[in-house]
Nucleic acid binder design. Structure first.
Length: 136
DNA sequence: AGGCCTCCTG
DNA sequence: CAGGAGGCCT
């Protein structure tokens, strides 16, 4: 029964597009939070990027975790914190520099951050990805 | 043309 | 989160 489903071309295509959609939505949420917290920091009088840090007990982290990992199903990798912090600082600097007057000011940040993306885990590249994931 | 992505909405 | 429109790339 399951095999029948997973070998269905339409079904697989549907799944991938949905996954893409999810990642897209996640990304959006991520960047919205980043901008929000960066602006908040500025309003709170933060002057330097050194004061901006992302740890497991900061508000920004909580907001993200609440959204992506509400039930704490997995442990958030350290790398995520690093990238999150870099992103936050990137936003902070851009806003402080007044770059946000440019309608597409976020593009530059996106370009920087996407290079920090981790590689896609091998399991997702497998054609049997769905089966393998289900067996975990 | 088809796939993937972003942006805006609901 | 899902849908839809529009842009970019192959």
């Amino acid at each position: 029964m399951l095999k029948m489903f997973f070998s269905d071309v339409k079904f697989n295509r549907c799944i991938t597009s949905q996954l893409i959609k999810w990642f897209s939505n996640f990304r959006e949420f991520y960047y919205i939070q980043m901008e929000k917290f960066a602006r908040q920091a500025i309003n709170d009088g933060v002057t330097g990027t050194e004061e901006l840090t992302v740890s497991r007990d900061c508000e920004l982290y909580r907001a993200l975790n609440m959204h992506y990992n509400k039930a704490n199903d997995f442990e958030v990798p350290e790398r995520f914190l690093e990238v999150a912090q870099i992103t936050l600082r990137e936003f902070f600097n851009a806003i402080v520099a007044g770059k946000d007057v440019d309608p597409s000011w976020k593009k530059a940040i996106y370009k920087v951050i996407c290079k920090l993306d981790s590689d896609i885990p091998e399991i997702f590249k497998s054609p049997n990805c769905l089966q393998e994931l289900l067996h975990e």
